[in-house]
Design a protein around this nucleic acid. Structure first.
Lengths: 206, 206
DNA sequence: CCTACCTTTGACCAGTTGGTCAAAAAAATA
DNA sequence: TATTTTTTTGACCAACTGGTCAAAGGTAGG
């Protein structure tokens, strides 16, 4: 590893570190932590294995770095929900942001899915802490909207789950979705479907 | 492996084969094929590794046997959709059947998810063949219901995806769901939410 | 060009992996 | 009980795993 006392990353360091993370994402998102090997990652990054370990102290360090980076982007869209905005548009906006993430960062989604399926050994704390609190806050907001009659009655937690489920499905089950749709681009129909679904579900029946 | 020419499985064979498959399910569903080891499976099954390989010729054989068994149960609920039944009740019934499967067989769901995330190397053909055809048929049925005005207009493919996504989410992301809900049982609210969502979405607005 | 540091690599290591095999132990059969 | 068949196991193997290390090759600044 480049000396800890170093002041800032050199040009080469920046290039190789990001090459390693990019390679790690490709490999880990497909095979999970235990199913991936350093040789695979090194190969994908176009570096030798000892060279990998010059930039990261261990396989675990690469994986953890990826997870950490991922979690930031993962929680962010939730925070953007505005209690003072129009309820339906806020929730719709959130769903669309998540869908766009599935489209643009499918590997990140699969990395996350892999980690959760394996029991979330490295992000248990974040999920039980930060994420849970954040979801609780949003649930409060949604309950407020319901109480004031601005949207239909729904369980806010399951509403959030169903947005997560539907948006991530297009990234995580990409292979299956494309196999069934054939030539059709999944994301074209997905956005329209999601919007329609949420509108019909949330629009107050007055 | 027990001699191929054998007439039928002995008592011991039946017991051990199913013990191995049960153990394989536990291990493979958590770590995927590449992330699992024969030692883990043997340990979980309470057998020695060479003993495992007396019943199954290879790690791959155990995994493939599990996948094959899984695929049967996986496609079955879709086939039960009755074109002559009440549209909303038929779709609701399907969704509930899938949710019950997530509740009772979460490991099977995760095994499937793992396989798909990894690119479905061993079940590509089934997905592109049998599954696709089956979904096409159901899509036809749904389109018929829409044409006759018995349910609201929806894209049948994305409707099916959203049922898959939401039901499987409770099995595949079990850890996350429970971390957020705390003491609350996810499946209680899930069924009600799913039903309400589908009814609001499908009920013809006349 | 020289020096000091940064980067890369080949050789290597101990532990793990999927899998084999002959022989021992148990069961079933006669 | 004697014999045949099925089941189990310990010892073993080659390939692969994550990781180390000393030495070689580059690079940047003086």
């Amino acid at each position: 590893m480049p000396k800890a006392a170093q002041k800032s990353d050199t040009r080469i360091q920046k290039k190789n570190q990001s090459a390693i993370l990019a390679a790690g994402l490709v490999v880990f998102s497909q095979f999970g932590f235990r199913g991936s090997t350093l040789d695979q990652v090194a190969d994908e990054a176009g570096l030798s294995k000892p060279n990998l370990l010059y930039y990261f102290p261990s396989k675990d360090a690469i994986y953890s770095a990826l997870l950490a980076k991922l979690l930031e982007n993962w929680l962010e869209p939730l925070r953007k929900i505005d209690p003072d905005g129009d309820p339906v548009e806020e929730l719709l906006g959130y769903a669309k942001r998540k869908l766009t993430m599935s489209q643009n960062f499918p590997r990140e989604s699969r990395l996350f899915a892999n980690e959760i399926i394996q029991g979330a050994p490295r992000i248990r704390d974040v999920i039980r802490g930060e994420l849970r609190e954040l979801v609780d806050e949003i649930a409060e907001i949604i309950n407020g909207w319901i109480a004031s009659g601005r949207i239909n009655s729904v369980d806010p937690y399951h509403l959030i789950f169903s947005i997560w489920a539907q948006t991530q499905h297009y990234a995580d089950f990409d292979v299956q979705v494309r196999a069934i749709l054939g030539e059709v681009d999944p994301f074209d129909g997905a956005e329209h479907h999601l919007e329609m679904m949420l509108r019909r579900m949330l629009a107050p029946t007055s």
